[in-house]
């Protein structure tokens, strides 16, 4: 599903974000990327989302080689990914429901089914009472849950979440992690970056990628891994 071989990412200003990393992520795998701020977690996720491209090495996501000049193919690939952005990237002046549906409109789903899936996703994240609320009027935590609903409603084969629990209280954070975890049962690979190591450290059946100064160490737990 994801295959990175000796991947490095160096930004134009010379900042080395990632150094010769090697990762393999399989369908249904739960992956946590942890590390201090500025360690390269988000850079790694951006590579997987096609928001950045490797400076060297080879990276394949869902069979697609991620490299500059393949923008059209990468955009098609994104339809199969459920991204959750750190800064949410919700569309202003739209309701929570409209935002969730916006992520599904170009997937060829009928409007009725789209609406039903979007409402169901909002219910899953506990926002059934905010369906018609404009996202501009939501709290930080609620907005984050709309972003999560938008990603999961797409029924992606790969979920990429950048700090999805960053603005949530412990109960909501655990609930969100539980929801994201549940996707692994349907063979969706879930990759999450997080600071909240206390919420995930006891979890079995997961892969932990620790990023430090652009380098990674991998710990796999559980029988399927």
């Amino acid at each position: 599903m994801i295959e990175a071989k000796d991947v490095s990412l160096i930004y134009q200003d010379g900042t080395v974000a990632l150094k010769n990393i090697n990762i393999e992520i399989k369908p249904g795998e739960m992956v946590y990327i942890t590390g201090p701020s500025g360690s390269g977690k988000t850079s790694l996720l951006k590579l997987l989302m096609g928001m950045e491209y490797p400076t060297s090495g080879s990276l394949k996501v869902l069979g697609q080689t991620m490299k500059r000049g393949k923008g059209g193919r990468v955009r098609k690939l994104r339809k199969r990914i459920g991204p959750i952005f750190q800064e949410f990237k919700l569309i202003e002046r739209r309701t929570a429901l409209e935002n969730v549906m916006m992520g599904m409109r170009f997937l060829g789903i009928s409007p009725r089914k789209m609406k039903a899936e979007a409402i169901s996703a909002l219910k899953r994240v506990g926002l059934e009472h905010k369906i018609k609320a404009k996202v501009d009027h939501l709290s930080w935590g609620e907005a984050q849950r709309v972003a999560i609903a938008r990603a999961v409603a797409r029924k992606p084969v790969l979920l990429l979440a950048d700090e999805p629990t960053g603005n949530l209280d412990q109960d909501n954070a655990l609930n969100i992690l539980h929801i994201l975890n549940s996707f692994c049962d349907s063979n969706t690979a879930v990759v999450i970056t997080t600071h909240a190591t206390h919420l995930i450290e006891n979890q079995e059946n997961a892969t932990y990628i620790r990023v430090k100064q652009g380098e990674i160490s991998i710990e796999r737990r559980g029988q399927s891994l």
Binding site: M49, M51, R75, K76, L77, R78, K79, R80, I81, P83, F85, K89, L90, I91, E92, M102, G103, R105, F106, R150, R154
Partner: peptide, 16 residues
């Protein structure tokens, strides 16, 4: 531009 950028990141084609 923010909305357009988000739509691209979600995989929306140029036509859409």
């Amino acid at each position: 531009k923010d909305q357009i950028n988000t739509l691209w990141l979600l995989g929306a084609p140029n036509g859409f």
